[in-house]
Amino acid sequence: MSPVVSAKDLGLVFQTNDGPVHALSEVNLDINQGDFVSFIGPSGCGKTTFLRVIADLEQPTEGTISVNGMTPHEARLSRAYGYVFQASALLPWRRIDQNVALPLEITGTPRAQINERVKQVLDLVDLSGFEKKHPWQLSGGMQQRVSIARALAFEASLLLMDEPFGALDEIVRDHLNAQLLDLWKRTEKTICFVTHSIPEAVYLSTRIVVMSPRPGRVIDVIESTLPRDRPLEIRESAAFLTIAHRVREGLRAGHSYEE
C-alpha cells in the first residue's frame, strides 16, 4: 500500500527581511494509511510548516512531497484532507450546524445531503443537540470539537491537526484526547497531529516525529509500542514512560547545539 503522505528531501526556506529562514530541511517521511502521527518539537522547528506544506498552504522550495499520490495542490483541489487549526476559527455569525455545513456548501453539496452529514459528524464529536447554538454559547473545548466536526465533513481520509488543543486546559485536553482516539478508531482516518506536549504525543500516536529547530529537521521517528486501545491510565505504564523518555531525549539532543 502506498503511503498517504510521502516527503523526500523536503526543504522550505522563507525569504524574510532578516534573510532566509530554513523552516524545513531534508525531511524524509512516509505516513501510512491509518497512522496517527504526532509532530513534536519546540516552537520554530517547522512542525506546523510541514503540516501546511501537506495542506498546500505553503510551497516547498526543495524536494518532493505527495499526498494520496498527488501533489499537495491537486490533493487540496480534490479536498483530500480536513484541517483543524490552533483556534477553532468558527464563524461567529453562523450557528453550529451552519459552521459545520460551510465546507459542504462551498462544494455545492445538495441541502438534504448536507443536513444528513452535519448530523452525522456532530454526533461523532458528541455535540448532538447543539446545532442551533452560536459559537459564543459554547466552551472553548466544545468549539474545538465543532471545528473537528467541520474538518470531518468532507469525508476526507486524512485529518491534519495543528495544535488543536493547545489553548485548552489540561482537564479538557485529557478528555478531548480520549475522545479523539475514539474517533480515530471509529473512522480509521489517517491523522497528522502537531503538538508540543509530550504526554499528548505519546498517548495519541502510533508514530511520533521529533523535530528540532533552525533548520527544522526530523531527528527521531518513534514507533509506538502501545496497543491501539488506550485507556487514560496507560499514561502511567512503563511502556508509556519509556517512549516519553525517548521523546524527551530526542528534544534535548535537538536543542543541545544551541547553547
Partner: peptide, 15 residues
C-alpha cells in the same frame, strides 16, 4: 486563519 480555512476548502473568490 479564516482565509486559510477557506483555502483548504478550495473556495472561489466569490465564495
Amino acid at each position: 486563519l479564516e482565509l486559510d480555512l477557506m483555502r483548504t476548502y478550495n473556495a472561489s473568490a466569490f465564495q
